[in-house]
């Protein structure tokens, strides 16, 4: 990956209390690319996004976004940086007391002085981009899971962010919605000239749309590469993950005592 880095994570350690989550993490996210961070549940992927978004601070090491160390910014600086970021939460996190239209218009109204007619045009364009212009009058409760995710995506890109973060964008979607959301991630990134970080455990969908993948296990990067390199990888963990095998370096059994003893044999 040769192009200039938008996000750099260097020697980052992070722990919730005494429980270490990230151990000496090093990652680079170059501009204009779609990069996946993959790994099993609870391996620290979402923590990584929260570090980049500045919601939490690393125990040691640094996280640099667009040349600035994010956890050294004051509140005003952090908010200025967040205006250039967009984050899609796992289940969309749409504001349930607002219509689809108001959800997408929310940031435009809060952060800009644009006239309402222009906001209307922009909202319609964003909704059109995700194929849901016709839903602008609906409330979030009236949308299916996949549609809610797409509306949330339209809201995430409302102010054309330079960095878009996706937290499990494929979780709980049917195969059609999954492909739609996957393609949208790629297309929006290219259209906006943004950089996308996709945290997911859906290997097959990621391999189709991303430029580069990182594999996280036990708080550290254990494999990385382009989709072709990952497909060709012989590393046991990557093999197990890509093919969804039950047993391998990630054991099927949670560590426990002697089986015979548990059965009173």
């Amino acid at each position: 990956m040769s192009s200039e880095a938008l996000v750099e994570i260097r020697d980052v350690n992070f722990a919730y209390g005494k429980r270490p989550i990230l151990k000496g993490m090093n990652l680079t996210f170059p501009k204009n690319k779609v990069i996946a961070v993959m790994g099993g549940s609870g391996c620290g992927k979402t923590t990584l996004l929260r570090l980049i978004g500045g919601s939490i601070k690393p125990t040691s090491g640094h996280v640099k976004v667009n040349g600035q160390i994010i956890h050294e910014l004051d509140r005003a600086g952090l908010y200025a940086m967040r205006r250039k970021m967009g984050m899609l939460f796992q289940f969309g996190a749409l504001f349930t007391d607002m219509s689809v239209y108001d959800n997408v218009a929310f940031q435009m109204r809060e952060h800009t002085n644009l006239p309402e007619e222009m906001i209307r045009d922009l909202v319609m364009m964003k909704l059109h981009a995700v194929g849901l212009r016709g839903t602008h009058d609906l409330m979030p409760a009236e949308l299916s899971g996949g549609m809610a995710r797409r509306v949330a995506l339209a809201r995430t890109v409302a102010l054309d962010p330079m960095l878009i973060m996706y937290d499990e964008p494929f979780a709980g979607l049917d195969p059609i919605s999954l492909t739609v959301v996957g393609n949208l991630i790629r297309r929006l990134n290219d259209a906006l000239g943004a950089t996308s970080i996709v945290v997911t455990h859906d290997v097959q969908e990621s391999l189709k749309i991303v430029d580069y993948l990182y594999f996280v296990a036990d708080g550290a990067i254990i494999a990385e590469g382009t989709p072709e390199e990952i497909r060709a990888s012989t590393k046991p963990f990557v093999q197990q993950f890509v093919h969804g095998e039950m047993d391998g370096p990630v054991p099927f059994h949670f560590p426990g005592g002697d089986y015979k003893k548990d059965l009173n044999l």
């Binding site: 978004g53 919601s55 952090l78 908010y79 200025a80 967040r82 205006r83 970021m85 967009g86 984050m87 939460f89 796992q90 289940f91 996190a93 749409l94 504001f95 349930t96 929310f106 940031q107 809060e110 952060h111």
Partner: peptide
């Protein structure tokens, strides 16, 4: 619980 507050924080609001 549905991350709406976190989403708002991430939108710099």
């Amino acid at each position: 619980a549905t991350e709406q507050i976190s989403a708002m924080e991430m939108m710099a609001i």
